[in-house]
Computed example of a mutant assay.
Amino acid sequence: MAIEPSEATTPAAPPQPPAVDPGQPPAADKVAGSGRSARAYRHSRPVFDRQIRIHSEYARRLVSLRQFRPTMTALYGIDVILRIVATDEEADQFERVITQRLEALSEALVAERERLQLELERHDLLKARPRYTHPVDLKVQIASPHIGAYTHLILEVDQLMIAIDTLWLSGLLSSKARTEIGIRWRNQLGRAAQSFIELHRYAYDEAKRRGQSEAVDNAAREVVTATDEDPSADETDGDPDAE
């Protein structure tokens, strides 16, 4: 903390202009007389803008703003925060844990879809596909590999539910089995999302403890997802198994 000079302190020599470090980003212009930056410096980050459509109700629950945006923010924030406050070894360890969990979920989803595809093929339903009355369109900013992987998992769940609904509408799957499968996969992805959010909270608390919260806030200021519709508005309508 800077120490203010007392009245008895001898005035210091006029301050010299600070040296310019060419390796640092240019400082923002100052607002006249206010001492504040006219515009904070913002990093130019690479992102993929991906338009996706979610059809099934159980996958829609996974992209409600109550869960989807916090999960995307957490996955991006973990990458940003850990590289600021942790050692490379610690950050790599957390990254491996997240990657392994996402990969395990993906492998399980693929195995389930392949099993259902065999059922559809056996009943000559590979080209059959139900129409959904209220699909949701989303624009997702893929700002990190983990965000891309989690988005892909939601799309996998959606395709899984389309296969399940095809079998159900064709009278080949009971309503009970359809509901159980949907709830199981929604909960598995939901638990993974919650673990990422908790890890992000832990990393942020650690950044605050080390006096790095301002650097973290500046680095993670961008909103990493944008939605065209909020499916959480009618999240429990017509669904007897809603939590």
Results as ranks from 00 to 15, higher is better:
residue 11 P to R: 03
residue 242 A to G: 09
residue 72 M to S: 06
residue 105 L to N: 01
residue 124 D to N: 14
residue 232 S to K: 00
residue 36 R to K: 13
residue 32 A to P: 12
residue 217 D to C: 07
residue 120 L to E: 10
residue 67 Q to H: 05
residue 200 H to Y: 03
residue 103 E to G: 09
residue 196 F to Q: 01
residue 17 P to T: 06
residue 242 A to W: 11
residue 228 D to I: 07
residue 60 R to S: 02
residue 169 L to Y: 08
residue 209 R to G: 10
residue 209 R to S: 11
residue 152 H to S: 15
residue 135 P to M: 05
residue 137 D to N: 15
residue 135 P to I: 06
residue 21 D to G: 09
residue 174 S to H: 05
residue 5 P to I: 06
residue 98 I to D: 01
residue 118 L to G: 15
residue 42 R to Q: 12
residue 231 P to S: 04
residue 219 A to E: 04
residue 211 G to T: 11
residue 142 I to F: 03
residue 223 V to S: 09
residue 49 D to F: 15
residue 72 M to T: 04
residue 17 P to Q: 04
residue 143 A to W: 02
residue 215 A to K: 14
residue 104 A to H: 05
residue 69 R to S: 02
residue 34 S to F: 09
residue 127 K to E: 14
residue 130 P to R: 03
residue 99 T to M: 13
residue 153 L to A: 04
residue 3 I to R: 14
residue 109 L to A: 01
residue 210 R to C: 13
residue 33 G to R: 05
residue 155 L to W: 06
residue 231 P to W: 01
residue 231 P to Y: 00
residue 11 P to W: 05
residue 206 E to R: 12
residue 218 N to F: 10
residue 173 L to T: 02
residue 220 A to L: 04
residue 158 D to L: 00
residue 135 P to N: 08
residue 96 R to N: 11
residue 1 M to L: 14
residue 220 A to T: 09
residue 242 A to I: 07
residue 35 G to D: 13
residue 17 P to G: 07
residue 96 R to I: 07
residue 157 V to Q: 00
residue 243 E to R: 15
residue 155 L to F: 03
residue 215 A to V: 12
residue 51 Q to D: 13
residue 218 N to V: 15
residue 31 V to D: 15
residue 76 Y to P: 01
residue 162 I to L: 04
residue 66 R to W: 01
residue 186 R to K: 11
residue 78 I to T: 04
residue 67 Q to E: 07
residue 85 V to R: 02
residue 118 L to Q: 15
residue 167 L to F: 08
residue 166 T to L: 07
residue 6 S to P: 14
residue 174 S to P: 03
residue 30 K to C: 13
residue 178 R to A: 01
residue 53 R to K: 09
residue 17 P to V: 07
residue 93 Q to M: 13
residue 142 I to R: 02
residue 199 L to C: 08
residue 165 D to C: 08
residue 230 D to M: 02
